[in-house]
Simulated scan of single mutants.
Amino acid sequence: MKSWDERIDDVWADAAGDEVGDETIARIDALAAERGEDDARAEFERGGARDSAGRPVEAVALYRRALSLGLDEEHRSQCVIQLASSLRNLGEFDDALDIIRAEEERSADGPYRDAVAAVHALILASAGRPAQGLSVALLALVPHLPRYHRSMTAYAREIAESDT
């Protein structure tokens, strides 16, 4: 028999490339019910299903609940990224920026640092500060470049100034 994590992964694999809707939500909810409503991971998955179905208000509440219940580090980072993204979709830019900036500090060397930077850039762009968003994206890209670290860092910082 497959583990709970494997069955969750199967639901997401089945939904890949498709529009997520009520069927996926129902499948995730059924699996989440196995773990109970006080299980952080179950609440996180429920939030993700709603987020993927274009229901950010519902997702935000579930993400916040999952975080308050306590997630392991990997899922906590994912939850924070998804929460900030959902808040961006709702136009709650200040809250989204506070959350994503705190995550940048907390997991500066973590495996999701580039995803954090991408969401940070999107939030800034959506908030009417596209040059600052471009700067964040460029600064995240710099470590992946074979050369030009100093000049690209300087350009990125210069670009950010144009939004102020």
Rank of each mutant, 00 (worst) to 15 (best):
I8H: 09
V20C: 13
Y155S: 00
L90Q: 11
R76Y: 13
V57Y: 06
S126A: 14
C79S: 10
Y148P: 06
A137Q: 09
D98F: 09
H75M: 04
E23P: 05
L69G: 08
D51P: 02
H75Q: 03
D163N: 03
G70P: 10
E58C: 06
A40Y: 05
S135Q: 06
I28A: 10
R64G: 13
I100K: 02
R64F: 12
L138C: 01
G21A: 13
P111Y: 04
S68D: 09
D39G: 07
L71Q: 01
I99W: 07
A30F: 08
I81H: 03
L141D: 07
K2H: 02
S86Y: 08
Y63G: 12
D9V: 04
A40F: 06
D39H: 10
A125C: 06
R106N: 12
D95Q: 15
H149M: 06
V119T: 10
A96V: 14
E23S: 07
Y112K: 11
G36D: 14
E158V: 07
R88N: 15
A49L: 00
S86M: 06
E6F: 00
D95A: 15
E73H: 01
L67K: 08
V136I: 07
Q78M: 11
D98Q: 11
L138T: 03
R65M: 08
L134N: 02
R35T: 12
L31P: 02
R7W: 05
L67C: 10
S3A: 08
Y148W: 13
G48V: 02
G110F: 11
E105Q: 13
G47M: 01
S162F: 03
L83E: 09
A156V: 02
L90S: 06
E58T: 01
A156L: 01
L124S: 04
A117N: 06
R88L: 12
L31H: 10
V119A: 05
M1F: 05
A33Y: 09
E161W: 01
S68Y: 02
Y155M: 00
S126M: 07
Y155L: 00
R147G: 08
S126P: 03
D9N: 11
I99Y: 08
G70A: 04
D14F: 04
G21F: 11
R41I: 11
R27L: 04
E45R: 05
S107I: 15
G47L: 00
G17W: 06
R147W: 13
E161A: 03
E161V: 04
Y148R: 12
E45I: 03
S107T: 15
Q78H: 09
K2G: 03
